[in-house]
Design a protein around this nucleic acid. Structure first.
Lengths: 144, 144
DNA sequence: TATAATAATGATAATAATAATCAAAATCAA
DNA sequence: TTGATTTTGATTATTATTATCATTATTATA
């Protein structure tokens, strides 16, 4: 099950860059889109390998890079040192509440905070590019 | 030039944990405190080595860990993949404006944002532990 | 459709940051 | 001062990611 829009974005990007499509790339995109958000390269590799046992690690990393370049994927460096990837298409910008016990991610957007961040950029004379905000704590389930 | 308070915090911590003091640890703390903020392990190593040419990389990493444990140092994972360390003692919590061109760090605190962050934690039933917020952009100097 | 040019793949080696190991040296409590 | 314990520096190990390269797959076009 591939979402048509995302598939088209990827294919257009490949065509634009004179790159070739392949079964592996199709499968990696499919798995990425159908899996939980905030996946690691290793987790993605583990799932893709079920269908493509011969797939190499390098292909996973190469394809993730392409997905990031064409705007379908965002790389996140988490405080614990891991690198995770999340869907970008059809997802507005958001920040994260992260449970330090169970590693659960909750996506949040607070328009008031966003507005204040813009003001901060302006106050210090910075041209805004992007921001990240992560709130680390212990979620309801893990508290009890 | 060592600041007495920090030195005491470190020594107390070592005593409490039944660890020993050493010239190397003293020197690393001294360099760390007197250097610019947001230093990498490699940069710290480079400076300390001028006074202690025989120092090993492992000692740098080991001592950084101790400094983090005793609350004098905070580890920051930056979006570009580097790990940097900043002073914690005598510095209230703050967030960062980061210039993606020249790598300049500006420390900022916005009490309104802080308050809204606390509200976000509460709204999702999280027990707050800490947060990080980084605003990436291009600073005044690099714009022109 | 066959071909030729180009790119992708998978296996493997390389790299870079950090951590673990261990014998020798330093610290410190008694 | 000594002896137990810790630290050190050198080195090796580990982990995530990237580069290399021969083989295979894709694709434009004849």
């Amino acid at each position: 099950m591939i979402r048509k829009n995302e598939e088209k974005i990827f294919e257009d990007y490949l065509a634009r860059e004179n790159l070739k499509h392949s079964e592996q790339r199709k499968e990696i995109l499919d798995v990425f889109l159908n899996t939980d958000k905030h996946i690691t390269a290793d987790e993605l590799y583990g799932i893709v390998r079920k269908k493509y046992p011969s797939i190499g690690y390098a292909t996973i990393y190469r394809t993730i890079r392409l997905l990031c370049e064409c705007g379908l994927c965002l790389e996140l460096k988490i405080d614990d040192g891991t690198t995770r990837y999340e869907h970008l298409y059809g997802h507005r910008h958001h920040d994260h509440l992260i449970c330090v016990k169970c590693n659960r991610f909750v996506e949040v957007v607070d328009p008031d905070i966003e507005r204040l961040q813009e003001k901060l950029f302006k106050r210090f004379g910075f041209a805004p590019q992007r921001h990240r905000m992560e709130l680390y704590g212990i979620c309801k389930k893990c508290k009890k």
